[in-house]
Design a protein around this nucleic acid. Structure first.
Length: 237
RNA sequence: UGGGAUGAGGCAC
């Protein structure tokens, strides 16, 4: 079963979804354990086949294998991909009923799902209710605000994140810099951009550069934008 | 190393 799951995952990582689903369909009931069900479901999600993921989840519910937090977070992610808050809410209720009310993975996925569905207020309620938060939960909330035009809330939350001594990562800065971009906050954007290396000891990613180049462009500072592109340590994409 | 949750800008539509 482990060998089959490994092959399944390999196919899905390479984007060979058909090959993976053929393999999965050919597996016996015994070979299909929780890991292979979840690998197949999350593989569909990662390849953008959200409806397929949900269909397979329903099939899983009819099997003898129970979903765990890995499975549920992937299924919630499928709802986010579909921006379908109705199914998302149903799965939310189900997850609460079977004991995942304070699960970090499921909560982060739900928070993201509500934000993607435009219900960022619900995301915030969930975020505040979470007993344990990690960088993913903070990122999901920050980018959720930014994606819903609540850019100042995103920036304020980032500052709270620092005060909470949670170490930001690449994704955090994408959220913060894009919020600055929406609000045309050039000075703040530059400040956060420089803080990536100077305060946090990280190398800015091409995405971080893109955010700042975009901001400079909106201010007509094309020479400065060009200079920044030329100064990029990696090849600009 | 058998499976997970969070990602920007732009162009076109």
């Amino acid at each position: 079963a482990i060998t089959l799951s490994s092959a399944l995952t390999a196919y899905l990582r390479l984007g060979f979804v058909m090959e993976a689903s053929d393999l999965f369909d050919g597996m016996t009931e015994n070979e299909r354990d929780g890991v292979s069900w979840t690998a197949m479901i999350s593989g569909y999600v990662q390849n953008g086949l959200y409806g397929q993921a949900l269909k397979l989840f329903v099939k899983m519910l009819g099997s003898s294998v129970r979903p765990d937090s890995f499975t549920l977070s992937s299924v919630v992610s499928a709802c986010a991909g579909l921006a379908c808050v109705e199914i998302g809410k149903a799965i939310h209720a189900q997850a609460m009923a079977i004991g995942f009310q304070s699960d970090l993975l499921v909560s982060s996925a739900l928070l993201n799902m509500y934000a993607k569905c435009g219900e960022v207020g619900d995301s915030w309620v969930l975020f505040e209710l979470m007993r344990v938060r990690n960088v993913v939960s903070w990122n999901a909330m920050i980018t959720g605000f930014a994606q819903n035009g609540r850019d100042m809330d995103a920036i304020v939350l980032y500052e709270k994140m620092l005060q909470s001594h949670i170490k930001p990562d690449d994704i955090t800065f994408v959220g913060v810099l894009s919020a600055c971009g929406h609000e045309r906050l050039l000075d703040e954007g530059l400040r956060y951009f420089h803080s990536i290396s100077e305060l946090h000891g990280m190398a800015p990613s091409p995405d971080h550069y893109a955010c700042i180049i975009n901001l400079l462009g909106h201010f007509g500072k094309l020479e400065q934008a060009m200079e920044l592109i030329m100064s990029m340590p990696n090849k600009p994409n």
